[in-house]
Design a binder for these strands. Structure first.
Lengths: 114, 114
DNA sequence: TTCCATAGTTCAGAACTTCGGAACTGTTGA
DNA sequence: TCAACAGTTCCGAAGTTCTGAACTATGGAA
């Protein structure tokens, strides 16, 4: 297994962020992660209520989120702990993540829109 | 030629907006349009400085922007006048478009970032 | 009316991306 | 050493994107 790639803060590209968050499944995962404390594992986030994401697809979603700079993943024993990089990101792109989650109605503690 | 489709304000989906703006070429077009007064035509926006977009690709970019709800296009004689729907959109997704353009460093009157 | 130029759209096929099942890797605990 | 578990990688099928060529729509000139 290759080591996990995380872009440096200054290498994070807005197009990668927008692309990663243009998939509602990834947004749902990201929003759950933003709400969860202590870093969600992949399998804990696989169940979206209306469907369970196959694990290869999940793994790919996490890769997209990670390589766009939205999350940081690190192996902890047999599991992977994932956490958002929202504090860092807000410094680089002020207000962006919040505006996107608000648009989706996925801000932690907010009822889902639409 | 089919009539042009424009989604109603309430049918505009955040994923479509993010997807449309996850392509730097489309963002450049959109930002020029937001800066231009009177509605830019397709061909007036084809020249991105570092490359000229082929017209079939341009037409497709406009279609993506139009069908995501970001712009409104209307035929005026031989040309197509395009304008942003930013006022409407800001009502539906407050702060979203501005945060995205700021992230790209493409807000009208702002020097380009990166 | 007919013809031409211009602006943009549609078509088609090549190149690329995404999805998801099966096989694999790495870690832990028995 | 082995089994179980969490995730990753591989790979083929299905879908998407890109762009040149052909087409359509409009307006102006002859």
């Amino acid at each position: 297994m290759r080591p996990l790639f995380h872009p440096a803060l200054e290498d994070i590209k807005p197009e990668a962020i927008l692309y990663a968050l243009s998939d509602p499944e990834r947004v749902a995962i990201y929003a759950k992660l933003a709400g969860a404390s202590g870093g969600g594992t992949c399998s804990a986030l696989a169940d979206l209520g209306d469907r369970v994401i196959p694990k290869s697809s999940l793994s790919n979603h996490f890769k997209v989120l990670r390589e766009s700079g939205l999350i940081r993943s690190e192996r902890q024993g047999v599991e992977m702990r994932n956490q958002t990089r929202c504090t860092e990101l807000d410094e680089r792109f002020p207000g962006l993540i919040r505006a996107i989650l608000t648009a989706y109605g996925q801000l932690p503690g907010q009822p889902k829109a639409d």
